[in-house]
Design a protein around this nucleic acid. Structure first.
Length: 112
RNA sequence: CCAGACGGUUGGACGGCCGCUGGCGGCGAAAGCUGCUGGAGGAAAGUCCGGGCUCCACGGAAAUGCGGUGCCGGCUAACGGCCGGCGGGGGCGACCCCAGGGAAAGUGCCACAGAAAGCAAACCGCCCAGGCUUGCCUGGGUAAGGGUGAAAGGGUGCGGUAAGAGCGCACCGCCUUUCUGGUAACAGAAAGGGCAGGGUAAACCCCACCGGGAGCAAGACCGAAUAGGGGCGGCCGGCGCCGUGGGCAACCAUGGGCGCAAAGCGAUUUCCGGCUUGCCGCCCGGGUUGGUUGCUAGAGGCGGGUGGCAACAUCCGUCCCAGAUGAAUGGCCGUCCAGCGCUAAAAGGCGCGGACAGAACCCGGCUUACAGACCGUCUGGAUUA
């Protein structure tokens, strides 16, 4: 399989607040997905709150979400939407294949 | 070999697939693509000290205040750190621990218990004298014994005495002076003194030494937007007073102030109240979102020589070793090496499964967290030769 680079990252606090306020929310094992489908291009952001644990735990959760998203989005080319993935307690430890399946399903539900 | 003390190192290994980010190069108008190469820690942590750096304040010095430090010597850019000593305490020992200046400057406090807690003190006891109701009362002596307490005004012994007591003596301790050794803390000795001067300074305090404040969200720069501001030019503009500038003056200039008038501002009218009084163009300036910089070569790492018990210093060689900013340094898989559990006579098999923890301007420390593995020195013991 050819390599797939990550889409643009959401980096501004304002964007995260907008997604949290307007986005459609889907709760799944391992993550909470906030999606806005009307967007000019594909953009992606990640959130891990202090509730999750120390810096090591939070960073690991974000990295796993990022990698899962990269792999899942490679199978959905041409998407134009904005997503924020919020890590949950089990994100860092759960089976990665499961996390990937849940994310693919959730994405399909948000953007058929 | 067992038990222990101290110091240090390490903190899974290899491979595959796919990514992220910095640097250098190539292609490209750019976006970007691509080659090579770098990419978390011993604590990156807590933010408890010390510095560099930046801005602010500031003429110098001293004093006072406030805060900190506190045996001595050394090391260091500096430190509350480190090294080497000293003193005290603990351990058979290797070693470990100490908030370790001053209590014969002053003030305060010492609960409860106890007779008494600071110019000592007589509750019980002991001794003497007197009295009588003959085992008690009164007076006196006594700090050796009992009791209280964290602490009761040196300790042990002998003498002494009515009983006692540094009352006398010996030794130990203490104080003063002197001498010796040591840079010093301090140690040792001699002479003198019968022994005062309880504890508490993590109570105030005294002494010595040190100390401006805030921090990379420091600071510098670029700069969409918005409000207010300034300059120049053009056009238009009522009155009075004042101010300002020019002029000897009459006067001239002035959108600087105040008052009056006038005009405008609400969907409309009246009344009351409020607000605005220039417009246009260009420029300056302002500095928000954002961006750039500060930003990684340094009290630097490694190896070696020299000096030093050491901390460390110095010299030579060599290397360049993270720079992100909703924040890169990774995700997944396989094999192996440790570890744990179950099973097994053994070999082995199956399952679980990597400690604490993630740079945010940079250094030096301290403190705290940490599965395990390894190395060195030393101590006590056991055994063998």
């Amino acid at each position: 399989m050819a390599g797939q680079t990550l889409p643009k990252r959401l980096q501004k606090r304002a964007d995260f607040l907008r997604l949290a306020a307007q986005g459609r929310k889907l709760v799944r094992p391992g993550f909470l997905l906030q999606a806005v489908t009307a967007a000019p291009e594909l953009r992606l952001g990640f959130t891990a709150t202090k509730k999750l644990g120390n810096a090591v735990t939070r960073n690991r959760a974000k990295r796993r979400l990022r990698e899962a998203a990269r792999l899942v989005l490679a199978e959905r080319p041409g998407l134009a939407a904005e997503f924020v993935l919020v890590a949950r307690r089990e994100t860092g430890t759960m089976d990665f294949a499961k996390l990937r399946r849940h994310l693919a399903a959730a994405l399909h539900e948000a953007v058929p």
